[in-house]
Design a protein around this nucleic acid. Structure first.
Length: 346
DNA sequence: AACCTTGTCAACCGCTCAAGT
DNA sequence: AACTTGAGCGGTTGACAAGGT
């Protein structure tokens, strides 16, 4: 299997295409079809290699190419297909008429991948990341979300739905606790290492992980106090990003179809009166079912841990402003320190 | 206004695969 | 069977634009 020598030939033009070159290529293909790409440049009077011509045609000049921003639906499709196919851009592109593999790949790398990372998901596996810093926000959001949904649907759920939700919530909280614990242990070790000037550069730890355990606890208590996010402050994509499918094996972050959501914009955790709204496709466990999070639901997310900038965080409203809810200390005390896990370990 | 950083996207590179000889 | 060639794919780069300081 030898490599194609096509692009190694010297004297062929590289770089951006000029309008004249584009015109030559388009006219030639319209009249004769592309035939052999290798032979095409000569026939079309272009000083390019065939590969370059093919790329220019398929990614830019083809008449059926759709340009412009990706729609919510396309975004959703890409995420779903990527969770199944991985980086098979051409395979994904076949499901998105008018979009090229290159365009989808770029969109993934510049938008969707970052979005998943910010949400605490591994962009490759579409599963919650296993390192604490990135996972906490997701787990907290999930725990909080289930709590919210629970509050808002107590009257309309049957026992089975209650059981499924409670179990999910308990699992999320439990995972968060375990990961907190794991982090604290790791953090203790790293702080000792730092103090002993034996910091291992191979240990890739984030800024947050470099903090001392105590400062982490302070951070955690501040999190609950300051960053109950009102998703109505987010754009629809961000809010929708917290829509999670309930699936036995994987938790795939797919974006929510906004049309499926009809929640009161007033609804929030501490407002027990606002129980309006509907949840569609809820709590079943097949591939196509999702929990649809109300777009206005408050979700607790540590902003610095998931890459939400301080500016973004500050624009979020706090549900804990004037009391009413548990104090941060008691919340985390309940959440973490009074857990049997801690008793078991002490 | 100048510089720096970040985001976007067209284009290139190197590889694999399949078909042909 | 071994090799060559062409096509296509996915990763990466770099130019440019936009926004921030």
């Amino acid at each position: 299997m030898g490599r194609s020598p096509c692009c190694d030939e010297s004297g062929l033009k590289k770089g951006p295409w000029t309008p004249e070159e584009d015109q030559k290529l388009v006219e030639h293909i319209q009249q004769h079809g592309h035939g052999s790409w290798r032979a095409l440049p000569k026939l079309a009077g272009l000083n390019r290699c065939g590969k370059s011509c093919r790329l220019r045609w398929t990614n830019y000049l083809r008449p059926d190419i759709k340009r412009g921003k990706f729609s919510q639906e396309e975004e959703q499709t890409i995420l779903h297909l990527h969770s199944i196919l991985g980086n098979k851009w051409s395979a994904i592109a076949t499901h998105l008429p008018g979009r090229t593999d290159n365009e989808i790949k770029n969109f993934w790398n510049t938008h969707l991948k970052k979005k998943l990372i910010q949400m605490g998901f591994d962009p490759m596996t579409h599963q919650p990341r296993t390192d604490l810093v990135s996972t906490i926000p997701y787990l907290l959001a999930l725990a909080n979300m289930t709590e919210i949904i629970d509050h808002q649907n107590q009257s309309s759920w049957d026992d089975q739905q209650h059981a499924a939700m409670s179990s999910l919530q308990a699992e999320a909280v439990h995972l968060a606790k375990l990961q907190c614990l794991q982090y604290l242990l790791q953090s203790s070790n790293s702080s000792i290492n730092i103090n002993n000037n034996s910091y291992d550069q191979n240990a890739m730890i984030t800024n947050m992980e470099q903090e001392q355990p105590l400062s982490l606890l302070n951070t955690i208590s501040n999190v609950k106090e300051n960053t109950i996010m009102d998703c109505s402050q987010l754009d629809s994509t961000h809010a929708a990003s917290f829509s999670q499918p309930l699936h036995h094996q994987s938790v795939l972050p797919h974006f929510l179809d906004p049309q499926q959501v009809s929640f009161s914009s007033q609804s929030c955790l501490n407002n027990e009166q606002s129980q309006g709204g509907t949840i569609t496709n809820f709590a079943t466990v097949d591939e196509t079912s999702w929990i649809n999070v109300p777009s206005s639901a408050p979700i607790s997310v540590p902003p610095n841990a998931i890459g939400i900038s301080a500016g973004d965080a500050s624009s979020c409203t706090s549900s804990y402003g004037g009391g009413g809810g548990p104090s941060p200390v008691s919340y985390w005390s309940e959440f973490f320190f009074e857990d049997p896990i801690m008793h078991d370990l002490s």
